[in-house]
């Protein structure tokens, strides 16, 4: 369904938060200002920020760590790349504190590919986000894959010109992120495992809740808004649209064309592939195959063709979630 119908309400939501918090003025007093090349009514508007992810629909955004991988992704037909210091699988293995990627590497990628370039910031890290906006990154992922710096709050994303994507495990989490100004939502899944099971769980939870709300009485919507701590109007809009009012991608553990097609079938608008491509033995073919399976997920012949392009022997090995200790889960960060 079109997300154009939700734009008007999201504009109201933004005005509400601007008016209520007057945060921009307060940040200014604290010396936190950033140059805006254009007036706020023209650039960085809701239409521009929520409209951008709509152009990524039915596409694949691929995690990359350098220019060479970014070019492989572009050649394969990716709609975007996400620049990281380490792929999520390696983040998991390395331990320690995971931070934003090197700005120089991100800039180098930006000057070598024509497709949008995204990068991750730590949850709550305003300055990493500010720096990425400064150098011109197209989309910021406030991501649980990196080590959070604020265990209470996410970034208030209404005050940035650049759009943000946030992870969620269920509807309440998604709506909280949207009310904080996220322009796009993705499932959290369990990153770096090559195991799509958590992404499946999160998408099913999301759509089960939306479908229930669609059939619910007004009272139930009010209870739900209270439970999630989000505006009732946002809950009502979601129930009416039968989907989140922003573009919703699948992420977390997608490793094969069939994984990508499965997530599209479950209602995803597109997919993020993290370690799945460049931790495999056949990244070029796998990247192209996942693009094909995502675009043509509803055409069995095309998905068969895509799946034949890759070999299970070349796939990333993956991690059984039962072997992970609770503290090793990334998805429980930033709720």
């Amino acid at each position: 369904m079109s997300v154009a119908g939700g734009l008007e309400y999201l504009e109201k939501l933004r005005d509400f938060f601007y008016g209520l918090a007057e945060l921009r003025d307060r940040l200014k007093e604290r010396g936190f200002t950033w140059p805006r090349p254009y007036p706020a009514e023209e650039a960085g508007t809701v239409k521009v920020k929520v409209g951008f992810p709509a152009m990524l629909r039915n596409g694949v955004i691929m995690d990359v760590t350098n220019v060479e991988q970014a070019q492989i992704a572009e050649e394969a037909g990716a709609v975007g790349v996400m620049v990281l210091d380490k792929l999520p699988y390696d983040v998991r293995k390395a331990g320690g504190v995971a931070r934003m990627a090197d700005l120089k590497v991100i800039e180098e990628v930006m000057s070598h590919v024509t497709i949008p370039v995204s990068a991750k910031v730590r949850i709550g890290h305003y300055y990493e986000a500010f720096l990425l906006q400064e150098i011109g990154v197209d989309l910021i992922d406030e991501s649980e894959v990196l080590t959070p710096v604020d265990d209470q709050h996410h970034i208030n994303k209404w005050f940035f010109t650049v759009p943000f994507v946030n992870g969620c495990r269920e509807l309440c989490e998604a709506l909280r992120r949207i009310s904080e100004g996220a322009s796009m939502i993705r499932s959290k899944g369990e990153a770096g495992t090559g195991n799509v099971s958590e992404a499946v769980k999160h998408f099913k939870a999301l759509y089960r809740a939306i479908n229930e709300l669609g059939a619910a009485e007004e009272e139930r919507l009010r209870d739900y808004a209270r439970q999630c701590q989000v505006p009732l109007e946002l809950v009502a809009l979601t129930a009416k649209m039968g989907r989140l009012p922003v573009i919703t991608f699948a992420a977390g553990g997608i490793a094969t064309p069939a994984d990508a097609a499965l997530m599209m079938w479950l209602g995803a608008d597109g997919v993020f592939v993290g370690s799945g491509i460049f931790k495999s033995q056949d990244p070029r073919q796998r990247a192209e195959a996942i693009v094909l399976a995502t675009a043509k997920w509803d055409d069995p012949e095309a998905v068969v063709e895509a799946q034949k392009m890759v070999s299970e022997r070349a796939a990333m090995v993956g991690i059984d979630l039962k072997t992970l200790k609770p503290e090793e889960l990334l998805q429980t960060r930033g709720l």
Partner: peptide, 21 residues
């Protein structure tokens, strides 16, 4: 890049004035 994306009113011949993103 995306941060420079904008909206503006545009007069289109034969179509009229539209809010263009």
């Amino acid at each position: 890049r995306q941060r420079d994306s904008f909206e503006a009113n545009v007069d289109v011949e034969g179509v009229g004035t539209v809010r263009a993103v």
